[in-house]
Amino acid sequence: MIHAEGLTKVFDDFVAVNQVSFSVAEGRVLALLGKNGAGKTTTIRMLSSLLKPTQGSARVAGYDIVREAQKVRASVGVLTEHHGLYSRMSLWEYLEFFGSLYGMTETEVRRRARPLLEEFELNGTEKKRLGEFSKGMRQKLALVRAILHNPPVLMLDEPTSAMDPESARVVRNAIAHMRGQGRTILLCTHNLVEGEELADDVAIIHRGRIILQGALEEVKEQQLGAPEFLARLAHPLNGVALQLPEGVTVTARGEDWVRFQVAHPRVNNPELLRALFHQQVEVLSFQEVPRSLEEVFLKAIRMEKEDVD
């Protein structure tokens, strides 16, 4: 659905995006992570045919972003980072205006908008002027506008920035719902918790270059090593050395707990639990140690800086 190959954008002397390549398959969410000014917005603007790449090419929803720009724009819903609304319009007028620009009739707009307004908790505000909307309501309305024409591809630039937690949750649920409907979503964010929650794949962009990309779990393993599991024990070990199966190592231990690194959890975890049972070590609980995307991000950026230095 989205395929970018060597996308580069140069403004005068400044290289904003440098040889960016990635793909997002149909029905998947790619989180494009990066600090402010890393090149996320410029990438989205190129992929939505707003900016012409200096080099490279891309296809979105099957269309070339330069040669078939109008078709790309018709197939993409874009939520821009700053989404000023027309403050003297009512919600209906606003949606009807944008819907008609996408070739929808008034009836189609209303039929499509009603469930969306309900989902985003905006029903009852149809006749209210947009100037009276709160920040969160504005952001939700902008998202409704972006998906009003039912585009197969969505590009969301910081969709929950500056939102209250409740509104942010509504938007995140909506994004998850849209992924479930088979839409392809490019999510630009520096909110790593959000990225981790919603994304199937991640790409980290730093100073215009993609420095790390892949499926979320693969990326974690690549950056942080094999997954770790914490076993809480019924009785203290009292210094007893454990006999462990191949592929399992102890990374830390306490009086009544042990942390294991497991190369292949699917194979090694049952072996490990059997081994503990045979050694009469009683296990109270056994769970994976959560590893955040934040750790991955910070490590990738740190390594990149070290490489540059």
Binding site: L50, R73, V76, V78, H82, H83, Y86, L101, G103
Partner: peptide, 17 residues
């Protein structure tokens, strides 16, 4: 004015020529 109020980009994202 639209640029200042950040309302221009949604308009530019539409399929209008």
């Amino acid at each position: 004015g639209e640029k200042e109020r950040n309302s221009i980009e949604p308009l530019l994202n539409t399929p209008l020529l």
